[in-house]
Design a protein around this nucleic acid. Sequence first.
DNA 1: TCATATACTGTAATTATATACAGTTAATTT
DNA 2: AAATTAACTGTATATAATTACAGTATATGA
Lengths: 197, 197
Amino acid sequence: MINLTEQQFKIFDVIKGHVNDYGYPPTRAEIAKIMGFKSVNAAESHIKALVKKGVLLKVPDSSRGLKLVEEYSGIPIVGRVAAGSPISAVENIEKYIPTNPISSPVDFFLRVKGDSMKDIGIIENDLVGVKKASTAENGSVVVARLEEEVTLKRFVQENGKIKLVSENKNYNDILIDQNSGFSLEGIAVGVVREDVL
Amino acid sequence: MINLTEQQFKIFDVIKGHVNDYGYPPTRAEIAKIMGFKSVNAAESHIKALVKKGVLLKVPDSSRGLKLVEEYSGIPIVGRVAAGSPISAVENIEKYIPTNPISSPVDFFLRVKGDSMKDIGIIENDLVGVKKASTAENGSVVVARLEEEVTLKRFVQENGKIKLVSENKNYNDILIDQNSGFSLEGIAVGVVREDVL
DNA sequence: TCATATACTGTAATTATATACAGTTAATTT
DNA sequence: AAATTAACTGTATATAATTACAGTATATGA
């Protein structure tokens, strides 16, 4: 992470931890207390250094007006691990994932029932991040409504005909016609699995 | 969401939006400005009402000392959808998922290479949330080191012997002995997929 | 009908907070 | 050797922010 000194890294961590624990950044006084500084100005100086080094943003004159630069906040992703090195060595960090990890904006999550999409790694109980939409690109994974049922399927359009395709060979394709009661609820943009069993 | 009035719901949303945009909650004055109130006390009263109804926590005398009760913050999960109802109707909301969705604390994410765990829905490019650990329960999915390689496998212990099992029939089990250079890096506690393709 | 909740305006006071300025000490760079 | 950076203490001040109090008005439940 750039060229932070040990102390600066600690301050960065204190801010990150406070945001995590309380939902908002600490004041200068709170930082000083946590770090054991007797002067609030010690915290202030460190903040200035962090801003100068580009890992922190400051909103002037605003209380708790601090924001960690996203690139350095969140939880680190470890990519390929070099021979013999400890897995969490700083050199191995690919990037940091932000609080909301999914690339596109998510309007809601859909809890997955069944295994019709298991071949693309979407399994029972997964949370699929969904962006609301009424149209979809050919080949994208969508949340479709058929009458009263809501399902997750791949959206395929051929010769003007719409097909809903499962990613599991035990399921047949669904062909859409006027009587299907079909409508699009949204597009799947990410997946979260809360536990690994 | 409990019994919020329309105005109270708006205030709740203003706070949620501010936290999302700025990384910290708004002041009473900022809420008032956004809502068009001429008195900061209008915001204060609404905050008191939200606290009373249990959807907001307040840290007294602390600037921006507001915290949305987790149960009502974050992105909604839509569970089973009732017949004919709009998918995002409030009645369908199962719960809200917090900013960091994985149940257990995550020390880092590991970017998945290969398909050795695809039968439990972990595929190439997924981010596996890992909790650092040097021991594991029998049957859990772990990040294991073998000499210089780091892999994701199911950890199986039988008659005092350790086996690393892939969740893909094309891969063979790995039997651990003294020469394997084996060590445990951590336990897989969740999965995030940033895109659905 | 009386209390209580909702939904505000307006004023004021205390406290919380950011931030500038003046120093000190030690280490590092030029 | 001089300048710069890092890492603080200590004082002071302007402003940011919470919060109490006093009202007004409407609606609702007991």
